[in-house]
Design a protein around this nucleic acid. Structure first.
Lengths: 195, 195
DNA sequence: TTGATTTGAACAAGCGTTCAGTTATCAAGG
DNA sequence: CCTTGATAACTGAACGCTTGTTCAAATCAA
């Protein structure tokens, strides 16, 4: 039976994932060794295998948890009435959510090629589900006649790239607050879809 | 005196860079070994060191060559009259140039963290020069009163992210031709800057 | 005492890089 | 046209180190 209090595994487990997340984001999955992760946690390399099957699973678990968080958070996000309000909610949500966890976002975009085939397929499916959310909003907007876009699928990809791009340059404590950035990006999104 | 014809180094040198480009793009810099590159070229690992100082320089040379190509190609690109024509030229050029060399683009975006500090600074400087080109166009457009953007620097980053994003989903022989994609993206760019 | 947790050493394999030695290629001389 | 000598191009083995992973033994908390 698992120990309730004072159990180290309840502490070490999360610490392993946190350390792996930070190190993978900084140096890249392939460039980080299990010994580096272990050192960050304060443990010997062998102990990591009590918390992960292998290095590949460690990466996959991080990415999967991130995508699950993303989809779950969007599901409960207030969305307002009408396609345009829906679109604004999505843009603001996307920027906020991604700026709150830059390491996980970085890994989810950069380390796809280090996943095994099955793991890659699983993550890709989650990503497509998220893209599908935006795509549905745009189609609704088209049906309502509040947006004009010649190719919804293309617009979806363009908007996601633009919004995710914030992570590449935004620095905490910089010129603009997150809300100010979201305001400006929402304006650009609206313009791009002709609304 | 260097031999003129039949010299293998004139062939092997480029082959090394081509193989490294393809392998780095597919698996990532850190995940590719010198022996893998050598095998792709059809040579033993030691022979690579006749063509590159070390693995790090190989990466840097690829990225530098790519950025130089980019800046040189934009310099000679016909740009039309007025800021709006200029902006359209940039958008179409960016998409075309990037779609023509997806491997180099991928590496230039994904492997920055595997560069040494000096090499990173050098590549970043080139990237900023390119971003500066777009930024200057947007400022001119603002001065001419043909675009409306509350923050030019932000708009620059947003547009570049959106345009570069094409590389993540475009597949040769897909639904849309490159020109069709460029048409649609140019429409979105124009909308995003309120023109 | 029990069982979860961690150590520390070991494993075979692979890493980037170097270098003495071998092979291939061309220019010059006969 | 053939041989020779020079050198560019490359091999193959070796260097010291690091890699992911396993596991018997030690340590720890309850």
């Amino acid at each position: 039976m698992a120990r309730k209090t004072g159990s180290h595994s309840d502490i070490t487990g999360p610490k392993v994932r946190e350390a792996a997340l930070a190190l993978f984001a900084q140096h890249g999955f392939a460039a980080v060794s299990m010994r580096q992760i272990a050192a960050e946690v304060g443990v010997q390399a062998g102990a990591l295998y009590l918390y992960t099957k292998d290095k590949q699973s460690l990466l996959y678990d991080l990415m999967q948890a991130h995508m699950d968080d993303l989809l779950a958070a969007w599901e409960v996000e207030p969305k307002g009435d009408g396609a345009l309000a829906h679109l604004e909610a999505f843009a603001r949500f996307h920027i906020r959510f991604h700026l709150e966890r830059p390491d996980a976002v970085f890994i989810a975009y950069m380390e796809l090629r280090n996943l095994s085939d099955e793991n890659f397929a699983a993550i890709e499916a989650l990503r497509r589900r998220y893209e599908g959310e935006l795509e549905a909003i745009l189609r609704a907007g088209q049906a309502e006649g509040v947006i004009t876009a010649p190719d919804i699928r293309l617009t979806t990809m363009a908007l996601i790239a633009m919004l995710t791009g914030v992570n590449t340059w935004y620095r905490e404590g910089g010129r603009l607050s997150r809300d100010a950035v979201a305001d400006i990006y929402w304006d650009m999104v609206r313009g791009a879809v002709g609304a």
